[in-house]
Amino acid sequence: MTTLVIAEHNNQQAQASTFSTIAAATQLSGDTVVLVAGHNCQATAEQIAKAQGVSKVLVADAEHYAHLLAEDLDRLVVAIAEDYSHILAPASTFGKNFMPRVAALLDVQQISEITAIDSDDVFERPVYAGNAIATVKSNDAKKVITVRATGFDAVAEEGGSATIEAIEAKEASATSSYVGAELTVSERPELTSARVIVSGGRGMGSGENFTMLEALADKLGAAVGASRAAVDAGFVPNDYQVGQTGKIVAPELYIAVGISGAIQHLAGMKDSKVIVAINKDEEAPIFQVADYGLVADLFKVIPELNDAL
């Protein structure tokens, strides 16, 4: 039994989700091998080789792997799949994009977004926007799984000494090509791995008002998130969205400001350790999950909070 983890990275360094996925892999019996597919990604391979629990790092370096397109990655993973009992990737947009293709080519029913491992073939995963937890047994010979990063504590990035081995790239796919990307630039911590998150909703009123939350976030070393309402209103870009269809986060402290707390938003943040809600509507559903609730006008309270910190 050996587990293959597909690394998420940007060719320079591995994302935090990769180390959480390795952590999940180490809960299975057998060794953990990590595949780094990319272009000029040797540094990433060396970084992952140092992580705890990794026995070997495979590197597939080719120009067409630079943007990790699903139509290229799937055949590469399938080509080496024979040697592995479990294949894991983070349940980020990266993993969600290509892993079901791998599963289909291997004729396997994928298990998505697991949050716990009960045994080598029994896994727990949330369904219905996190309102129920299903325990699922896979009867497929090979398990193809995506891992919810917040369900597993990342392995230490130092102390390991895995071997690095180059593997052959497959031909580029003819069905899909990369055109461009527009990435959000931010100095703040990345949303899914932040220790503290300050999120704003429709109650913020405008995009300009988010500067208030940004100031608060900077004081707390926090990332800034948003509800779907705030994204749809154009206050902030969509990759700020926390929820069933946005990012799933579980920080130590989540401060929800002007967010009512719809089912779909709660799905993305209710595993946070401490939840603070600031809302002027005392009936808002967010207060049902909040550890500390403050019924007040956010425009008065946020500057006060800023001063108090």
Binding site: I133, V136, L294
Partner: peptide, 25 residues
């Protein structure tokens, strides 16, 4: 290819408290 062994409620959160002021928060 899979069997659902169990469907359970997610762990309930402990009931929170309301604070009156920013200082208290």
């Amino acid at each position: 290819r899979t069997e659902t062994l169990k469907v359970a409620n997610p762990p309930a959160r402990q009931e929170g408290i309301k604070v009156e002021t920013v200082a208290e928060l």
